Amino acid sequence: MLNARMPTAASVLTAVAAVAAGALLLGCSAHVEVGTSAPKLSADKVAETVAQKLAATTGQPKPHVTCPGDLVGKVGTTMRCTLTGSDGRTLAVTVDVTSVSGNNVNFDIKADDKSSPAPN
């Protein structure tokens, strides 16, 4: 009988925190429709891209990530997203726009070194 333990969001948080201690910095890119103003990526698209990249880097399932708003496709724009573990602990993730090329907004993500405890 094979007994496999499925990783939880808490283990993803632990894995991300461990990798973050080694200066986790990932480059990401997302496609956006460009209008007359600076392109924007929806908060959901940024969160999904961040979750996919973190999962791929840690070898864990995609974590739950939320972002506070749309990401403006302008070099130097920074946003803080939040990864939440199943135990309620959170880990902040910084998203930094590094370049915009046509309809692609390229950004780096970096997870904080330490997580915050779950709210009481």
Rank of each mutant, 00 (worst) to 15 (best):
P39T: 09
T14Y: 10
Q60A: 01
P63E: 09
H64Q: 14
L2W: 10
G88E: 07
N103S: 11
G27L: 03
V50T: 03
A20G: 12
M1F: 14
K114W: 13
C67A: 15
L2F: 15
P68S: 00
E33W: 10
N120Y: 07
A51R: 02
E33Q: 12
T90R: 03
K40F: 10
V50L: 01
A18G: 15
S29T: 06
K62M: 08
A21V: 07
S101Y: 09
I109C: 02
T94W: 10
N104F: 13
L2T: 13
Q60N: 04
L41K: 00
V65K: 05
F107P: 00
K45W: 04
V65N: 02
P63L: 02
V65P: 09
D70G: 09
S99K: 14
T84S: 05
D108M: 03
P119T: 09
A10D: 13
I109V: 15
P117M: 04
V105A: 02
A55S: 15
G35L: 04
S101T: 11
P119Y: 06
F107C: 00
E48G: 12
S116L: 14
K114E: 14
R80G: 00
T66W: 02
A47W: 05
P117F: 07
M1N: 09
D87Y: 04
P119L: 07
S101I: 14
P117N: 12
A111Y: 01
R89N: 12
V32S: 05
G76S: 14
D44N: 09
S11F: 05
M6Q: 15
T66G: 06
T82Q: 11
K62T: 08
A15W: 09
T77K: 05
H31D: 09
L91M: 11
T8V: 04
K40G: 07
D96F: 01
C81Q: 07
T36D: 14
I109G: 01
S101M: 05
V46Y: 10
T36H: 07
F107K: 00
V105L: 03
S29N: 07
G27T: 09
D44S: 12
A51Q: 03
M79D: 12
M6I: 15
A30K: 07
